[in-house]
């Protein structure tokens, strides 16, 4: 629970509280207006999102970043070639064949030829290039699996629509290593927004049991999917920097953060997922 608390405290103190002040001031004054802003030239970069998963055909999305105030339509370059190098040194081309993943609901642009079965410690490499000479490379090693020990829930004393349960997810952090986790709890489907999400590191209780808890927010008979990802440090930092960058826009107390990509030559992430998922019905 420690890290979940810390995450919440951090959010409350560094984000919500000053934000609340700003909101209070803004709502009482309502002093907002559109302005014209002239930004320096921003050369677009290739953006890669590549999550390899055991038992799945590799699917990656390659897009292009854009000047902030330009058209909102996503820029998908069509001249990009992508290659995946397997742990055994075999290099596969991921063909350009845009589509939507039925499970995740996410768009991909390049797809592999066969399913992969990575094991913890194995390293993959990715190379993406286009005809303008832009080249993005990255490598990723699959973290060990950290299993979920228990998922338990407890209802409050209220009745009817106010009867709600909290959910506790327990697991044990391996002692020898610095570890990073991401816990997501989805209701009904994993393609929706998660109800709960924590991204934590073990710097304060290395090697101890973790209990990540929610508030009373699940109704009787809710079907929930609890997913615990064990992340490597580059992926954790990438997620953190994405969150920081998003928080900085619109928060006068936020410190703008550069995106800490796990790839070189562009923006984005290349990682091998290591997770365990449990489906439970809260009764």
């Amino acid at each position: 629970m420690q890290s979940s608390l810390i995450t919440r405290i951090s959010n409350a103190v560094f984000g919500s509280l000053p934000g609340l002040l700003a909101l209070w001031l803004l709502s009482s004054c309502g002093l907002q207006q559109d302005i014209d802003v002239v930004l320096p030239d921003y050369p677009p970069q290739l953006v890669v999102e590549a999550y390899l998963e055991s038992g799945q055909i590799p699917r990656i999305a390659v897009s292009e970043s854009a000047p902030y105030l330009s058209s909102p339509n996503p820029q998908v370059p069509t001249d990009v070639k992508a290659y995946l190098t397997l742990p055994n040194g075999q290099r596969q081309e991921l063909r350009f064949d845009p589509g939507i993943d039925n499970v995740t609901g996410k768009v991909y642009t390049h797809i592999g030829q066969r399913r992969i079965s990575p094991t913890p410690g194995q390293t993959f490499r990715l190379e993406v290039m286009d005809t303008q000479g832009r080249r993005v490379t990255g490598q990723a090693t699959m973290p060990a699996l950290v299993p979920i020990d228990t998922v338990e829930w407890k209802f409050n004393d209220k009745q009817g629509e106010f009867r709600k349960a909290y959910v506790l997810t327990r697991f044990r952090d391996p002692a020898p290593t610095t570890d990073y986790y991401r816990l997501q709890i989805h209701r009904d489907s994993i393609s929706r927004d998660p109800e709960v999400e924590y991204t934590v590191e073990d710097r304060l209780n290395n090697g101890a049991e973790y209990s990540l808890g929610t508030s009373y927010e699940f109704a009787p008979n809710d079907t929930i999917f609890v997913t615990l990802y064990h992340l490597d440090q580059p992926y954790f930092r990438f997620l953190q920097s994405v969150q920081d960058a998003r928080n900085a826009n619109g928060n006068p107390f936020g410190q703008p953060s550069a995106i800490k990509s796990t790839v070189e030559g562009g923006v984005g992430v290349f990682t091998v997922l290591s997770y365990q998922r449990r489906m439970v019905i809260v009764k």
């Binding site: 921003y42 999305a61 897009s63 970043s65 000047p67 989805h186 393609s191 998660p194 990802y229």
Partner: peptide, 13 residues
Amino acid sequence: LPLGRFVFQDVYG
């Protein structure tokens, strides 16, 4: 101010 932006889909959900 941010000069650019990119679309981030994330892994699941």
